[in-house]
Design a protein around this nucleic acid. Sequence first.
DNA 1: AACACACTTGCTTGTTGACAACAAGTATTT
DNA 2: AAATACTTGTTGTCAACAAGCAAGTGTGTT
Lengths: 189, 189
Amino acid sequence: MLAAAQTLILERGIEGTTLAAIGERAGYSRGLATYRYGSKAGLFQEVSSNIHRRWVTYLEKAVDGQTGIEALCSAADAYYRFVSDSPEDIRVLHILYYAGAEPSSELRGLAKTAFQRQIADAERWIQEGIDNGSILDNVSPLAEATQYVAHIAGVTYIWLLNPVAVRFDDIQTSFKQSLRDRLTVDDAA
Amino acid sequence: MLAAAQTLILERGIEGTTLAAIGERAGYSRGLATYRYGSKAGLFQEVSSNIHRRWVTYLEKAVDGQTGIEALCSAADAYYRFVSDSPEDIRVLHILYYAGAEPSSELRGLAKTAFQRQIADAERWIQEGIDNGSILDNVSPLAEATQYVAHIAGVTYIWLLNPVAVRFDDIQTSFKQSLRDRLTVDDAA
DNA sequence: AACACACTTGCTTGTTGACAACAAGTATTT
DNA sequence: AAATACTTGTTGTCAACAAGCAAGTGTGTT
């Protein structure tokens, strides 16, 4: 059922997908989707947290106990790999998240907490890096963390609009390089 | 009419706004919005390009003939000022753009071209900067331009979700600094 | 063990109200 | 009289909900 919903979101978008179509695509009746999930928003929340859960597992495995710049880069790498492995999951997840930009969207809370959590993670990694001396102590953890998450969200959005025009790997490389340059102690000499 | 639409989008979102409500909010009948703009999507495209036009005017005045890093920073400053001056315009514009992340959304084309144009602008500025020697020649104009636009879009998105948590001015300062550090010839010595 | 009964679960079909889209008006101006 | 600006009537679609049904799952009775 959730798989059918995901397919239909990719095909026709949120607006264009009807609960009846989801039920029937999954081999059931037109009424089942509503019955199981209560509402369209309820179903989409389920789809969203389902994918989010997969992503978090993936992320935790990649970052493990790392801190500082290494954690940031590993997380970015993990994201890039996740996008390569399951682009459709990321597409659907972000379609749902961006739908949460609307006021009074029921997906809003979900998107908000997801991004807040990612910012908090990044902030913690940066703070830990500052504490152990690997990150410059004049950077603002919150400002950097916000930009870190914003960068990834923004690139994903541009990619959603125009997949072929975004060279994810180039961007990824340059992003990590720029993180190192900006945040870490300059040991060039 | 477009103003009424904008107000209602801020109050209730795209989904929650009905064409009848827009007409009536503007002091007309329930049918006028459909009559004038043909469809809900048509009306919202009009709202979107209306705000977009204001932004472009604002931007052109700010960037004027600048190139290279100066153009990038001026554009970023202009955006920050625009957000401060008319946060509601930016909110509505981006709500509409993010709605374009959906497949088969009629706002998609508009969002796509808007962002493509901004990337093309940034790419041109960077290329000009490389040509006149003010920007390092090992940066990829397209990759940097994409990240530049993605950064701004991403910060805006996080801000839409959670306005109070985003210190636009801090981020702005750090963003410009990082642009200079990464792109320009290092004349620290 | 065999049966009957209440009760739950999983799903379907019927219905309602909201809304976009459109068609057919009615003023009002030129 | 003809175009313009707007309104009202109508239809089809869809989310949401309610009511139903069929197939289990006990639970107690003989």
